[in-house]
Write a protein that binds this DNA or RNA. Structure first.
Length: 409
DNA sequence: TATGCCGGGGT
DNA sequence: ACCCCGGCATA
């Protein structure tokens, strides 16, 4: 669980033993009023956070808006020298911030003016702010200051129990064009929209009006500004396995009339595209495997897969509901979406619907050859060998009209 | 038309 | 899991 709450509430939680232990990572973008803790219950014999120690941590944190990595290990730092030797420990008080160690911070000049307001929150009403089951990137109301979780190693976490994702030191939200062989990364949504609108959609460049179609062609990415080069290199179009799945065979754009109006694109995109090959930009930018996407792009993925599967007699169904789940599936070839989102009623107070996180699980793009029905085996099968009159001699698969198991090709 | 077998339904 | 079959693709 990853939760955000006020420091003073954490004290309450510790006292009430809501929290057995906790760890914290470098949530330096959080204000001093709120801290994000990754905590988890552990077995009895494992390290148990001492209440006093926790209070000391809280005391330190309450004056520290900035926590630098690597974070302190509780077992070493708190129960160790700091606790026993007084101030000579990993926690460097703000009045002695130059003494080094794991922690350092600069006391804010205006502590009476926290940047983050304090909503009512108490131990009794304590609820996790967010529980990203897949390490989900679920932007909350905090906007850019929202903690961003990524795939970094868990070595800097306080406990050895891995926590899937943690926040990086300095993450920056960028916007990446999903147009194949483009991969342009811009820092603003407006910028990437303009890029897509003018470069790829061929629309009037002097108009900033958008019908929203650009949303389908870019995605948010998180870059560590400490290693932007790494992030960019890994996101370059030269990594087709990650961002440029193999294009599907040419296929007409399927009808999306089954889709509800609210999920329709403004208009079919490939009818005005200059690109050869007959593939649509969406299909060429088809993501694969597991995605965490925002509702902004949910339809992009769906539309993509509808496109990809248009070669078959696709009977597409998309069943959005007002509840907390949706599913999309079609018959040929077999691909199934499942996804969940948080309904507005269940995420009250946590931002608008556009910023909610959706997990989409899909099958990976199939090879072109696999798109067509498997070619019938050439060799003789049970039916041919034994004849209809000796059907009992057939292998079971043949009897069941399945692929012959006895005479495989 | 015969054959192979996928997808799906029934028990 | 086992069994059956409609229906499609192909030889």
């Amino acid at each position: 669980h990853i939760c955000i709450f006020r420091v003073k509430d954490l004290d309450l939680f510790v006292k009430k033993r809501v929290i057995r232990s906790f760890s914290l990572t470098d949530w330096k973008q959080l204000s001093k009023v709120f801290f994000c803790f990754c905590f988890h219950r552990r077995s009895e014999e494992e390290v148990d956070m001492d209440k006093v120690t926790a209070a000391m941590v809280l005391t330190s944190l309450s004056t520290s808006p900035l926590v630098r990595s690597p974070p302190v290990r509780v077992s070493e730092g708190l129960s160790g020298s700091w606790k026993d030797n007084g101030s000579a420990g990993p926690f460097t008080p703000s009045s002695n911030s130059s003494s080094g160690g794991y922690w350092s911070w600069s006391a804010p000049s205006d502590q009476s003016n926290p940047s983050t307001p304090s909503p009512p929150l108490s131990a009794d009403s304590f609820k996790p702010f967010r529980v990203p089951s897949l390490g989900g990137v679920g932007p909350g109301p905090a906007g850019p200051e929202d903690p961003i979780l990524d795939e970094q190693d868990g070595s800097s976490l306080l406990f050895d129990e891995p926590i899937p994702r943690k926040r990086k030191n300095s993450m920056k939200v960028m916007f990446k064009c999903l147009w194949k062989n483009c991969g342009k990364v811009l820092s603003t949504a407006a910028g990437i929209q303009r890029h897509i609108r003018t470069i790829h959609l061929g629309r009037n460049c002097d108009s900033d009006l958008s019908d929203g179609e650009e949303d389908f062609y870019y995605t948010e990415i998180k870059l560590n500004t400490d290693s932007v080069a790494d992030g960019l290199s890994s996101l370059s179009p030269a990594s087709p396995s990650v961002l440029s799945p193999p294009p599907p065979p040419p296929s007409p754009l399927p009808s999306v009339s089954q889709l509800p109006d609210s999920h329709k694109p403004t208009q079919p995109s490939d009818t005005k595209e200059p690109h050869a090959g007959g593939t649509t930009p969406l299909s060429r930018s088809a993501p694969s495997a597991l995605y965490l996407i925002h509702t902004d792009h949910a339809y992009q993925v769906m539309k993509t897969y509808v496109n990809n599967n248009s070669a078959g007699s696709a009977s597409t169904s998309f069943t959005p509901t007002n509840s907390s789940s949706f599913s999309i599936s079609w018959q040929s070839p077999p691909v199934t979406f499942t996804g969940t989102t948080v309904s507005p009623s269940k995420s009250q107070g946590f931002g608008d619907q556009r910023s909610q996180t959706i997990a989409v699980l899909s099958s990976p793009p199939r090879a072109t050859a696999a798109l067509s029905r498997k070619v019938r085996g050439e060799g003789k099968k049970c039916r041919k060998v034994y004849g209809m009159e000796n059907r009992d001699m057939w292998c079971t698969a043949c009897r069941w009209k399945k692929a012959c198991q006895r005479f495989t090709d």
